[in-house]
Amino acid sequence: MTTRGARRRVPFTVIGGFLGAGKTTLVNDLLRHAHGERIAVVVNDMGEVSIDADLIAEHDGSTITLANGCICCSLSDEFALSLPDLLDLDPPIDRVVVEASGISDPGSVAQYGTLPGFRLDGVVVLVDVETIRGHAADARIGPQVLRQLERADLLVLTKLDLVAAHDVSEVRSWIADVVGPVPCTDAPRDGLDPSVLFGLDHVAGRDPGGPIDHGFRTTTVRPGAPISRDALDRWLAGLPSHVIRSKGRVHTTDHGPVVVHVVGRRRAITPDRSASPPPPGTGTIVVIGTGEMGGDEAFEHGWDELT
């Protein structure tokens, strides 16, 4: 416990959504395109994981180790008690992703991400635009389906190619009606860029303000003046709903250097223990959002108002 606590807290992401929403497809994508991260993916069903044999380094029945360093293990009843053991793996893992079962409350599964050694990064819930309203209206399972949406930090709409565009916008307004302004993005037909879900480390080097894959935009915001932790929190809370992900390091006036993580409507501000935190009065926050997101000016304007 002590050694675990002393280490960097490992980000922990939950993928939720009802049966058929596309969780398995997403998980398979993640395992194949990890962008150099060593991800431990805890899946609901090992039988559904499809990985080319030549990418598998080791397969012992309950755990698959991939050539790219990722590992995949199954969500069994031992899962909970053994989750902290993932922190002891050597070489260490960079991230844990847990696929919740199709009926379960992903917010409950997310609580494991608050245990020592982890940092709960976010609850991402996939929504099959074709079937979601039918499931939600089902007298038996409807309440649990709605609960999944309510527990999401970020919603990802899937199966978009199966319905007409105006139906997608109807689903969007239906979601806004039933669960409020949860940031919501589309899953492109050829798969979701992991950077959208997991942060901007591997897109931060791209042109600020320029488009990234699949119509997402990214922009880099710098503080114009020193800012307190509370003001920073208010600024993050006020980000528009087409911002789906933010990450940065800022030197605050009252809490020193901090790290900022935003996934949809979840935001976390934690002490920056890195070797070279930003000097007082400085900082950088990278923001990623949907195509509707504006350029740098809009963000910097909001920032100035707070300081």
Partner: peptide, 12 residues
Amino acid sequence: PSFGPTVQDDDA
């Protein structure tokens, strides 16, 4: 079956 790794594959 829910304790196992293939909760969807009823045939398995």
